[in-house]
Design a protein around this nucleic acid. Sequence first.
DNA 1: ATTACTAAGACACGAGTAT
DNA 2: TATACTCGTGTCTTAGTAA
Lengths: 226, 226
Amino acid sequence: MIEPETWFTLYSLAQLGAIHERVTLTTRQLGNFMGVSQQTASRRVAHCAESGYISRTLTANGMGVELTEQGRNELLQILGGLETALAQTGNEILIRGKVVDGLGEGAYYVDAYSSRFRSALGFAPFSGTLNVKVADEESQRAVSRMKHTPPLVVTGFTREGRTFGDVICYRVRVNDKIEGAVVIAQRTHHSQDILEVIAPVNLRKKLGLGVDEALVLRVVPLHLVT
Amino acid sequence: MIEPETWFTLYSLAQLGAIHERVTLTTRQLGNFMGVSQQTASRRVAHCAESGYISRTLTANGMGVELTEQGRNELLQILGGLETALAQTGNEILIRGKVVDGLGEGAYYVDAYSSRFRSALGFAPFSGTLNVKVADEESQRAVSRMKHTPPLVVTGFTREGRTFGDVICYRVRVNDKIEGAVVIAQRTHHSQDILEVIAPVNLRKKLGLGVDEALVLRVVPLHLVT
DNA sequence: ATTACTAAGACACGAGTAT
DNA sequence: TATACTCGTGTCTTAGTAA
């Protein structure tokens, strides 16, 4: 079992670049970085070396440090642990939000990408987007988890001298009724807590959604898409 | 500055599910999980509560624990630090490998997906795949980093009762000369260190690649793709 | 300027135990 | 049963300083 301090030292060294190449630094620098004294940094880094997590060479004005494979594995293990811990909740991703007014630009862009959406998503999108403001913090975390699932990427193109960038899509079911997709453009003018949703139909009409109306987006994993 | 022990306690609690919901557990259980005594677990979890990283309620047979927003942020910060530390190297992703013989199945599948590859990648693939065995550990880490970049996902389909699953693609330049893509099928028969590469041309002929010949795949980020 | 030893004080650990 | 207090023991920390 790795000690918390040993782990923290490895983590600090990794942040200083020792995970990819041999970096030269002093125990004083490392101590400042970790928030401990020079002596403590010296002892901790010595422990890491004894345990085989780093390889170290002493030089005239400092030391050269590089993580070993074992050290890297230790960090990767923690990374994996964190990712799975954050990703739990039974894989179900539900985003609660409410309808807000958009800028009216949506229709123009949806039309521009229309055929590409059709081939990527399997439906011809209604000419307009539904703007959804993410409701609470739990839903914002759900958005974050959604963005860590494999997306559908619609590649950009150039038309009449204008550049249309890549668009990233995530399939969702709106109010558990209508299949659609959250579309995220590379250069978006929206604040981060507003999502744009497209669907084969006019969502506002079909679901009778007025402004400020609450709705739920259920993210559909790609392997469930036919 | 968060103490290493405090961080480790938060990490352990997150792994036990306290990051998403209030979990009930005893200090003895937590101690076993962390590899310390019941008393130490009690003290450490008390520190976390004092520092505002968790909210805790004592019950008759244990305690209810849940991370606060502050606690979650602390973990997310570490996660971000780890991800960026592991992702450095100037963002350049180079995979070194050598040509190996395939099973001959490649051509059949490439043809089946051909039109879909064409619309997703912008080229009609040559009817066959180049199988590349990943050379060293550094390249295996590069593969891992590649898989953390946004992929192009080609959705599966059913034809004549047969199911063709989703295929995930990453754009690459082969030997810095020819545009192509690494394709990863959901159900692959390959061992993990073999990649399948498709391109608009016959790569083996065009580059004069024999078996065991070394080659380099440079992963092309999507935002550089037109 | 380094790294790292010494030494004294502070802190953490865990067995026993109170509640 | 649980949490958490006391307390003896041991480890960690840091200032000073050697090398």
